[in-house]
């Protein structure tokens, strides 16, 4: 739900390059501090959960571009450090599969991993309080998605000045082509009229997002119930129940 579904070249370089660097740094730190043996043992599980997330993200509800992320359930099963690596892998594969946004892989990883990491901690926190599996999973997923969607809106709003530049300075760039464009005296008037409608973007994203948060919350809760029935050991809830 909370991917930045933006094409390459829309976000400013000063935004996506640090995003890449930050994601790489977090991944490097996680690789460095995760025990090699544990990492090696959990590699196939990481691959499998990442594949499940790729499959979930590929089932799109047209025309509203909804898809389940399965990040929270993957976070619950993988833990907070491995879910970051899994989201990194998922974003690389999705970008390579034609979802676009190769340059925003870093930012997407940071945003999507918020879902997984927050989902994991919220799930365990609420479980200790309520012990009701479906309710716990639903609330944890809902809140995790709210956080990541606001993080996405925050990132998109950071690039406002760049969007203005794209709209106002038509034809300017490293390579200029003036085959079709003819700047007349009306150009300045038009420029004054154009503005960035971030509020409109938010007004569309939030209601659509709300439906998505509920849907993903319900689906994740039902998946958790199914897993709890067949393989309760995977959820690691026994220790907390005792």
């Amino acid at each position: 739900m909370s991917h930045i579904h933006l094409p390459d070249g829309v976000l400013p370089v000063w935004l996506w390059v640090p995003g890449f660097i930050a994601a790489m740094l977090v991944a490097a730190v996680l690789f460095r501090f995760t025990k090699k043996e544990a990492l090696s043992r959990r590699f196939p599980l990481l691959g499998m959960m990442a594949a499940a997330m790729v499959l979930g993200a590929s089932v799109e509800v047209v025309p509203i571009a909804y898809h389940v992320n399965l990040t929270v359930i993957s976070g619950i099963l993988l833990g907070p450090s491995l879910i970051f690596l899994a989201t990194f892998v998922v974003n690389v594969i999705l970008a390579l599969f034609g979802h676009g946004g190769i340059t925003v892989i870093g930012l997407n990883t940071l945003i999507l991993s918020i879902e997984g990491v927050f989902g994991y901690f919220l799930f365990h926190l609420f479980w200790q309080v309520s012990k009701r599996l479906i309710l716990t999973t639903f609330i944890a997923t809902f809140l995790a998605l709210v956080f990541s969607t606001f993080a996405m809106i925050g990132v998109v709003s950071l690039g406002t000045s760049h969007y203005e530049e794209l709209i106002h300075h038509e034809g300017e760039g490293i390579f200029e082509f003036h085959l079709l464009k003819d700047k007349g005296p009306h150009h300045e008037e038009e420029t004054k009229k154009t503005e960035i409608h971030l509020g409109r973007f938010i007004a569309i994203v939030l209601p659509l997002g709300f439906i998505g948060w509920i849907l993903e919350g319900v689906i994740t809760a039902l998946i958790t119930r199914y897993i709890h029935r067949l393989r309760p050991d995977l959820l690691h809830l026994e220790k907390e129940s005792q």
Partner: peptide, 20 residues
């Protein structure tokens, strides 16, 4: 054409500027 679905949402930022 698949990623166009996502780009549609983003166009609201520009207030439907054709060039953008």
């Amino acid at each position: 054409f698949y990623p166009l679905i996502f780009a549609v949402l983003f166009i609201f930022i520009s207030g439907f500027q054709i060039h953008f």
